[in-house]
Computed example of a mutant assay.
Amino acid sequence: MPPPTQTYANDHSTPVLRTHNWRTLSNSASYLFPYLQPNTHILDVGCGPGSITIDLAKHVLPHGRVVGVEYVSDPLPAAQSLADAEGVSNVSFQVGDIHALPFEDESFDVVHAHQVLQHIADPVAAVREMRRVVKKGGIVAVRESASLTWYPDSEGIEAWVKLGERMRRARGANPHPGRMLHVWAKEAGFERERIKTGAGTWCFSTPEEREYWGGSMEERMRSSGFARDALRDGFASAEDLDGMARAWRAFVEDDDAWFGLLHGEVLCWK
């Protein structure tokens, strides 16, 4: 069982990993590009299936290295297989809890986390731990969702958003906290003048993008740990989940449909 400080409402089922595997340095961590050098040593916290981790490793060749950690081992064999298939040898993966990272003080040049803090009960403690393992002058980089919007109006998609927020808050999580990352960083010990704030977006509107995003969310409503827990814990009925799944299918099939997600980003220098 994960430690009680972990509040992750999803699992590592196929539809979840489908969305996570889409994430790359370019579409999910481009704010880090200017700070990557051929010898940068990076820790990627909450690496999941490793798509961002492996991309980071490619961008710090030939002398840089990347370590990816995840609080459970489930996605790590696939992450290592992906690295092997792409011929990326300067990356490794291991189990590690963001609240007690298994590394010495000041071990890394960059410590990165993407959509991790929203899933834990004490994000300030997590940022403080990330700060501990980054070198003096190094960077802690964090990106979290801040808000969602879509077209056309959809009661089913709105119900999906509200369901996710209810489930996460019930577990002690912090849904869509991108707007307050700089505050958490200050509370974790970073000086305000050494915190750079920013924002990034995802947008899904082409047929391929709608199928990727909407199709994955449809599948999550039908078969994932999220759906299982929603039913088990009384947050939604099977009818509710079916309505959300059908709303996502309608989104996929609507040529005018559009879904946007705003992220907050911080770069924090120790």
Rank of each mutant, 00 (worst) to 15 (best):
F93S: 06
D153A: 12
E129P: 09
N90F: 12
V72Q: 13
E218C: 11
E70D: 15
L43K: 11
H176A: 11
V66C: 10
A247T: 01
A57W: 13
E187P: 03
A236S: 05
A100Y: 08
Q118T: 01
N21F: 06
R194C: 09
T40N: 10
W269H: 14
L32V: 08
R65L: 07
R166L: 09
E209H: 07
L101F: 12
L267G: 04
Y35S: 14
A100H: 15
A188S: 08
N39F: 08
E253S: 12
W202T: 01
G234E: 03
G46M: 04
S154P: 12
G68L: 05
H182K: 03
V88M: 00
A83T: 09
R249P: 00
G68F: 02
T149Y: 10
T197F: 02
M244D: 04
Y212F: 15
P77D: 09
S147Q: 12
P49C: 10
I120G: 02
S147H: 12
F251V: 01
V252E: 09
V67F: 03
K270D: 06
E208Y: 08
A121E: 04
H263C: 05
E104G: 08
S73Y: 13
Y8P: 01
Q94C: 14
E265A: 00
H176Y: 14
G48P: 12
G164L: 06
D242C: 02
P3K: 14
P34D: 10
S30G: 08
V45R: 06
R65V: 08
G178L: 10
D55C: 11
H20I: 07
E165N: 10
T24E: 08
E253P: 03
P207M: 10
P49V: 10
R192G: 05
I120W: 04
Q37T: 15
G234Y: 00
P3R: 15
Q37C: 13
E158A: 15
A141F: 05
H59M: 15
D11Y: 00
R210K: 15
R169W: 00
Y71W: 14
M217N: 14
P38L: 10
F108C: 02
P152G: 07
G50F: 07
E265K: 00
P62C: 05
V72E: 13
A230I: 06
N27P: 00
E106L: 05
K162H: 12
R65C: 08
P2W: 06
T53V: 11
T5V: 10
S216G: 11
W202L: 01
V161H: 14
G64K: 11
L56C: 07
P75Q: 05
R228S: 02
A227W: 07
E70R: 05
V16H: 07
W202Y: 06
I120S: 00
E144T: 03
K270Q: 10
R23I: 01
L17R: 09
K186W: 03
E106G: 02
Y35D: 10
D242L: 08
G48Y: 13
G178W: 07
E191S: 15
P4R: 03
A100T: 15
V161G: 03
E193W: 13
K186R: 15
K162A: 14
H12V: 01
V116N: 01
K58E: 15
W184R: 01
E219R: 09
F204M: 07
R222F: 11
V91M: 04
E144P: 11
A236H: 02
A78N: 07
I120C: 03
A141Y: 04
R179S: 11
H119W: 14
I98G: 13
I120T: 02
Q115G: 08
A247L: 05
T14W: 03
P175H: 10
